[in-house]
Design a protein around this nucleic acid. Structure first.
Lengths: 341, 341
DNA sequence: TTGTAGGCGTTATCAT
DNA sequence: ATGATAACGCCTACAA
């Protein structure tokens, strides 16, 4: 025992004095093999500790049963729930996951794509880095007809399949809600990024202002990294605006929380003096006081839908060329941070 | 173009009228090939869009350059930082990651181990599920001399390599700190799990009580899932204890936060009436008011150290048989939730 | 129902 | 410095 060498179908064939072809067929439960032989073979395989060699198999089959996932980072609650969703579906369908992080860098993203390509993943699920505008690095996959789709942070030119929420609509609802609560000077804190996620939210914000006959001013848009610390900085900036804004809509909960805490510390009452809303429904939104109004982001569901969709392609019915966009529901969750009177 | 067929070294060989052997050598930068031929080959490879076939290569080399990671879940801040650390090191060393979640279930964990084994990962990094006590499913790897090591949640019988913090010591420090702040009746909220992580913390808690001549009572240990909601339930339980405890040490920040908020809502002042400490230094600990005293958990570093260690084994110098345990520093961070007077 | 034989793309071992 | 060729382990026409 403790042999370094693996047991192969040849070993099984030799012992049983049967051809490797029959062994191979039995192992994949081919109905053409007789029940008796099959049992004999499976028993021996078990006994000898046989395990199939995926490489040899893949080398012939040209399928790896691996799905690549490229994401900016695993560090948000949202992202981890997406992954959980993806994992569930892919696992059930017999696929394995290779996860790689672009760390919000286009260069690293390109490298990730290459690696995935070389590892011959059967398909790819991608959420783009902050600053990815050119998506030509995915042409590799396009050319080989390897299916891939984007989720959440998608490509501008939607030539490809996307799974995301209607950021514009959600943002419109948040802004409208703030207006309904009496806010007239609403600041929007967003990322310094060209991603659809943020540009669409800006559009929704503008639209809501326009529909309620409120002026839009470029100065009311603050751009930062959306980290919690950046939220504190944004608060400092807001504090010295004149006149003082009466509403803040931050594009993510972490940053909103940082902002809320800093504003509170500066002596403002939330929501009486200034109302604050976030985005994502991150658990932290129910920890901060007052609890944060936000938009529920269906991470798990997004992962499930994206993965299911990809696997659908993999199993061959529909072609990847079909450009389709799936929009998931995102709903406004009103909490104390914006509820006046 | 848009050929489905891949370019192989045979194609390159044919075009250049050179043997596949030379092509193969040139591609891996073997110094035995002349500079001129090498250049010719690399240029053509680039031009024809050649990519090496990992399967064929692995089939021969018996190495996959893949490292498996099995974790309970990616859903905590701690875990995501660990992964970031692992990713950095493995990537730099030219390895890819396969991440799989056991979802805190032993059964799923066993399945994960199987999958990793069949995918022939070169090594394995594992953090065990809540209830894994028997670790015989790792014998597969042991027998094949495939290196693996545990981090954070490690095996009881430390026959294998571990990377973790000194939970007992950290817990001792938290408890001692509470005592120093005047707490005399300290409740410990922990997981319903046999994992070293929690049992060691209990030991540290007990030891601190003993060293300060305080009685230990089994009733002062509350076991739950350590979720934020569970924290609320724990608070309700604590509220009806008689006499009321004056200190709570929760084994993770999420749960501590849930507990803190609920206690506050019930009318208690933190830390005057009851002090609360958590564990992990999760970002949420600086959001809750008052800010939570906790223990800094070096996730990123843990990932880095674990991965580095594994790769060390992979590159062959030291054998896996060497049972070694690496302890990382974890430090008490005192914040308002425990600071009295 | 089972067997034979060739090929999947690469690399290592001999030769030359 | 380069070439020929035999593995690596599995799958699948095709034949029996």
């Amino acid at each position: 025992m403790d042999q370094d060498k693996d047991v192969t179908i040849y070993d099984l064939a030799r012992v049983l004095n049967i051809s490797v072809a029959t062994i191979s067929r039995a192992l994949k439960d081919d109905p053409v093999v007789s029940k008796k032989t099959k049992k004999k073979i499976l028993d021996l395989a078990e006994e000898m500790g046989y395990r199939s060699n995926h490489f040899a198999r893949n080398l012939r089959n040209r399928r790896t049963h691996m799905i690549g996932v490229i994401i900016p980072r695993v560090n948000s609650y949202f992202m981890s729930t997406v992954i959980a969703g993806i994992e569930k579906v892919t696992n059930e369908a017999g696929y394995n996951l290779i996860i790689s992080q672009s760390s919000e860098s286009v260069a690293k993203e390109i490298q990730c794509v290459r690696t995935m390509f070389n590892n011959r993943v059967d398909g790819l699920l991608v959420s783009l880095a902050y600053d990815t505008t050119d998506t030509s690095h995915f042409d590799l996959f396009q050319r080989k007809s390897i299916p891939f789709l984007f989720f959440d942070r998608v490509a501008e030119d939607n030539r490809w399949a996307n799974v995301l929420i209607d950021n514009r609509k959600a943002s419109y609802e948040v802004t409208s809600h703030l207006i309904a609560q009496g806010c007239r000077r609403i600041v929007h804190v967003t990322a310094n990024s060209k991603s659809n996620v943020y540009s669409d939210r800006i559009l929704g914000y503008k639209q809501a202002l326009a529909d309620h006959h409120l002026p839009f001013a470029e100065e009311n848009i603050i751009r930062n990294t959306l980290s919690q610390e950046a939220g504190g900085d944004a608060a400092a900036f807001i504090r010295q605006m004149d006149p003082l804004p009466d509403g803040v809509f931050v594009a993510n909960d972490n940053c909103a929380v940082g902002c809320l805490l800093a504003l509170k510390r500066s002596g403002l009452r939330i929501p009486e003096d200034i109302a604050i809303a976030g985005f994502n429904n991150d658990p932290v939104s129910t920890v901060v006081e007052p609890n944060l109004t936000t938009v529920n982001y269906p991470g798990y569901e997004m992962g499930v839908v994206a993965a299911r969709n990809l696997i659908h392609h993999l199993n061959g019915t529909s072609g990847i060329e079909v450009t389709n966009t799936i929009l998931l529901k995102a709903e406004l969750i009103v909490r104390a941070s914006t509820q006046r009177g």
